[in-house]
Write a protein that binds this DNA or RNA. Structure first.
Lengths: 151, 151
DNA sequence: ATTTGTGCAAATCGTTTGCATCTGA
DNA sequence: TCAGATGCAAACGATTTGCACAAAT
């Protein structure tokens, strides 16, 4: 009953610290304190959709000392390494998605909540050719939803 | 051959000034100088996709005195009145589309150019139900394209 | 005359950057 | 050791806002 040596922040479901470190190294990123801590927050539980600010606050709440600037840097580094995917929603805020596979989203315009749509649920027919000397790099589908009472 | 009374800015293809005024009034907006001028720039020729900055520069070039703040205000008022539609692309910039009907877009990640996709070209199959007490307000499809050489 | 719109400049918001300091291999 | 990371605060770009002035009905 005395597992104090495991550290207070460790949750049962979390990826072991060593695994995270390995994963970061594999991506060519040094497993520093803050990167490991952020990676744990991001990848510990299922799919997540976070903004830099959200992740920063979460880190603070867990007593992980990390600056907002570093959160931004880290999110972009993870994205570059293929661990995250950016989701363009609107306005200024940028969302990062831990699900890097091809999939689409629900976006609640009221709460700002972003949710994955089950992969394969949507199929797109009649996709036109890309103009002139261009190729399609990605197709984004955003299904905007609102409270039934609104609008 | 002397149609000087029509004013120097009038182009053959432009909507007559009076029509614009009527249209604005119909939308519950006072047809002020700058609103009429901006409306002419926006609706004179086919489909347009502009940012506030683009429209502001265009106005300046045509010697229409209007401040950037007013361009922002006007774009939002027009949007609220259903004359324009906002297109969420990414990053900071907000695009406004003169085509308010249901349709999708190509977006060139290199040039930042936005293009309409012919209405009806794309069909979406298997759209899932909106979560809990929500309704779908709109479905956005953005087909991102890049130069064939890139990536 | 009243109401509404406009311009300007300052304020805000999310994000990025420069640079001195720290840290991991 | 020493390249690479981090923190801080200042810089930034897009957008919004407060308020005195101007224009539309």
């Amino acid at each position: 009953m005395h597992r104090s040596h495991l550290g207070a922040q460790k949750l049962p479901s979390e990826t072991a610290l060593g695994d995270v470190a390995k994963r970061l190294r594999g991506a060519g990123l040094r497993p520093t304190r803050q990167r490991v801590a952020l990676a744990q927050l991001l990848f510990a539980s299922g799919e997540r959709h976070v903004t830099a600010e959200m992740l920063h606050e979460e880190a603070q709440a867990r007593k992980v000392p990390v600056s907002l600037a570093t959160v931004y840097n880290t999110l972009h580094q993870f994205t570059g390494a293929g661990l995250l995917r950016e989701v363009a929603v609107e306005g200024a805020k940028t969302y990062f998605d831990t699900n890097t596979s091809n999939h689409y989203h629900f976006f609640c315009e009221v709460s700002g909540l972003l949710m994955d749509i089950a992969t394969g649920a949507i199929r797109i027919e009649g996709l036109p050719e890309a103009p002139d000397g261009m190729t399609i790099s990605r197709v984004d589908v955003l299904v905007r939803v609102v409270d039934k009472r609104s609008r």
